[in-house]
Amino acid sequence: MEEILLKYIPNVLNAKEELIESIHETFIMVSIPGVISLVLGVLLGVFLVVTRKGNILENKIFNNMLEKIINLFRSIPFVILIAAIIPVTRMIAGTAIGTKGALVPLVFGTVPFFARQMESALSEVDKGLIEAAQSMGSSPTDIIFRVYLREGLPGIIRGVTITFVSLIGLSAIAGSVGGGGLGDFAIRYGYQRFQNDITFVTVIILLIFVSVIRGIGDILIKKVTH
């Protein structure tokens, strides 16, 4: 067994400890910003939908502002965003480098994306259901929690899955500019030192990450769809 590994992935074995450390860093860069974005994204997604024209908490000015801000952040390429918000990152995280420094830009990069995913998931909730809830005397809060977030759950989970997968991509970019993690690992060893086996193993690991996230998402969607 060891012989085979030595033959095919010698460099990976040499950098074993660093690889494990990288996996750990990627895990942090996906999970922490992921959870924060989840909360903020759901919040913004809900606001985007309910303040729309004709909806339960119609508010043209607020909706317009939110749209503009989200579009602004969505249109900045992530690599540039990392650099652009360095002062903010320093203010929040205390540092702009390392894994810790990558968390803030990751949140900024993910929240607008996830908010849009939420918006589309919640927009899929049949208008008739909102009308029915209103006719039964439900308040706006009731409608948000008992109708939108509940009936939109399959779409929300789909959005969460897509967001986490894209977050893995963003974490690799953040890594390459100093955040650590699997992206950084692959660039430094695989790309810059021409150790192709490292790139290959990294890809496999990332593929497993993505498949696990997708798999969990699919199971949950199946569970909440009746």
């Binding site: 008739g128 259901l129 909440v224």
Partner: peptide, 8 residues
Amino acid sequence: NFNLFNSR
């Protein structure tokens, strides 16, 4: 269209 909650 009945407007029943499909998740319930």
